[in-house]
């Protein structure tokens, strides 16, 4: 895997999140906060709309890297900052896009930086995946 260079784009991904996705994630994760499926509750606490769970965005954003890596390595660390909410429209949903680039190569660990966007804004900050790739 020594052919990787810093700045190289590895993979991109695109997921359409709908209210169905949010309800499914609520059930799978156990996070039933109603701001993730009820417009009236979201509005009552001053939110611009029903929001995706931050952990759903984080969870889906790493998948392109997992798919790219396959069995050639393993994930050792994954961290994000939740910088902007992902508003999920009740009709059309929202498209979340992910771009993964090589951020740094540190001995046996490769840092992959994710750019994650929705509604024309980046929604995660410092989204970094550290993987150990087999030689």
């Amino acid at each position: 895997m020594s052919d990787l260079v810093v700045g190289q784009e590895l993979i991109t991904g695109k997921v359409t999140l709908t209210r169905f996705s949010l309800v499914r994630y609520a059930g799978a994760s156990g996070d039933f906060n109603p701001i993730h499926y009820r417009d009236d509750v979201a509005a009552s606490v001053g939110l611009p709309g029903v929001l995706a769970h931050g952990m759903l965005t984080m969870g889906l954003a790493v998948q392109p890297v997992i798919d790219w890596m396959g069995d050639r390595g393993e994930l050792v660390e994954y961290g994000v900052r939740f910088t902007r909410p992902v508003v999920v429209d009740g009709n059309g949903g929202v498209v979340v896009t992910v771009t993964a680039k090589v951020g740094a190569i540190e001995d046996d660990v490769t840092r992959i930086d994710l750019t994650v966007s929705a509604n024309n804004q980046t929604v995660l900050g410092k989204a970094q995946v550290r993987v150990k790739l087999h030689q």
């Binding site: 931050g54 952990m55 994930l75 939740f82």
Partner: peptide, 13 residues
């Protein structure tokens, strides 16, 4: 409370 950051440091899956 708002979730600000999250990180996972993994020994194995």
């Amino acid at each position: 409370i708002v979730h600000g950051e999250q990180k996972f440091t993994s020994t194995r899956p």
